[in-house]
């Protein structure tokens, strides 16, 4: 009996040591990857800005974007309830409340259907579905007039509803 305990303890201690070691190597790398992804996402959805100030509102962190000294807009988080789990997005809106860009940070939609919300067409460099929203008012966003994703109504609606909900809350709070 005592031998069982000793063996299991030994196995676990070794495993913990190994994992601690690997974690200490990968932790800064993972943090750097996250940081890089975030910076890239901010640049993609608010390309004109050159400075992003992190602030907080009830829906999470947002970034106030500046071009030189002029505040030109915000990037806010938005979460849509997709077909399989949350669709986490980052949405850029200018001072007039118009969308400047949308970046999907994470989604688990069905490949070939809902996952096409981030599909990039041949010879293009931005997802065609999300590009359609640029220039529209974030707080009154609707699917009307938008080319939806075939067979993925829930995903299309989740994105629109998520953005609208977060935009309404955010604009109400900062004004």
């Amino acid at each position: 009996m005592l031998r069982f305990i000793m063996v299991l303890t030994a196995v676990c201690v070794v495993a913990a040591l190994v994992l601690g070691g690997v974690n200490s190597i990968t932790k800064p790398l993972i943090a750097a990857q996250k940081e890089k992804e975030l910076n890239q996402a901010l640049k993609d959805i608010m390309p004109e800005a050159d400075r992003y100030d992190r602030k907080t509102f009830s829906g999470g962190d947002y970034y106030q974007c500046y071009k030189g000294k002029k505040a030109i807009g915000y990037t806010i988080p938005a979460i849509g309830e997709g077909y399989s789990g949350d669709i986490r997005m980052l949405v850029g809106i200018d001072n007039k409340g118009k969308i400047t860009g949308i970046e999907v940070l994470s989604q688990a939609e069905t490949p070939g259907l809902g996952a096409r919300c981030i599909e990039i067409k041949h010879r293009e460099n931005k997802p065609w579905f999300l590009e359609q929203f640029i220039g529209k008012s974030a707080d009154s966003l609707q699917l009307k007039g938008i080319e939806t994703i075939t067979g993925a109504t829930i995903t299309s609606e989740a994105i629109v509803d998520g953005i609208r909900k977060y935009a309404v809350d955010f604009l109400k709070e900062i004004n």
Partner: peptide
Amino acid sequence: PCYIVVIATFVTIVELLLKA
């Protein structure tokens, strides 16, 4: 249980490496 600990350790290593 010993096998599971060994396997889980390797899986966690893979996960961390993939993330990094």
